[in-house]
């Protein structure tokens, strides 16, 4: 189990020095940010006619889900392919590490990276919560995480 964590940690650290991960994180957060801003603007414009409609985070979560479908392959496609290209796969496969520990470690590292992007996007519900009285639907936020 320790090996999984060691590999996951190296994978996770690696994301924060590779440009593609930043590009992906930037695009996801930019797109959701634009959607969020337009959404708030729309609600403010229509506040008077909106007949009790309350803004929630569903437009963001919808977009987020779609973006993840595109970005997860972009982020994870290189995890093993890059190792093979660099020759380091030979190193990992001849180290005293089981194959499943290697795969699980790689998966865990990528998962934690995506989780980090999701954690950053939590800023939207927090802002929204401050704008709306008496607060937004917290259950929807929890379930969308």
């Amino acid at each position: 189990m320790r090996n999984i964590w060691i590999i996951a940690k190296r994978e996770f650290d690696h994301y924060f020095i590779s440009p593609i991960a930043y590009v992906v994180a930037f695009l996801i957060l930019l797109t959701t940010g634009i959607i969020f801003a337009i959404n708030i603007y729309y609600f403010i414009q229509n506040a008077l006619q909106s007949f009790g409609q309350v803004p929630d985070i569903s437009p963001i979560t919808g977009a987020f889900g779609f973006l993840l479908v595109l970005s997860i392959p972009a982020v994870t496609m290189r995890t093993l392919a890059d190792e093979a290209r660099m020759g380091t796969l030979e190193l990992l496969l001849t180290a005293p590490v089981r194959d499943f520990e290697l795969v699980a470690g790689k998966w865990l590292g990528s998962f934690l990276f995506i989780l980090t992007i999701v954690a950053v996007s939590l800023v939207y519900p927090i802002i929204l919560n401050g704008l709306v009285s008496p607060g937004i639907d917290q259950q929807l936020v929890m379930s969308s995480i």
Binding site: H14, M86, G87, T88, E90, L91
Partner: peptide, 8 residues
């Protein structure tokens, strides 16, 4: 190995 396995 022949191709030195290093992380740049």
């Amino acid at each position: 190995p022949e191709t030195v396995p290093l992380y740049n």
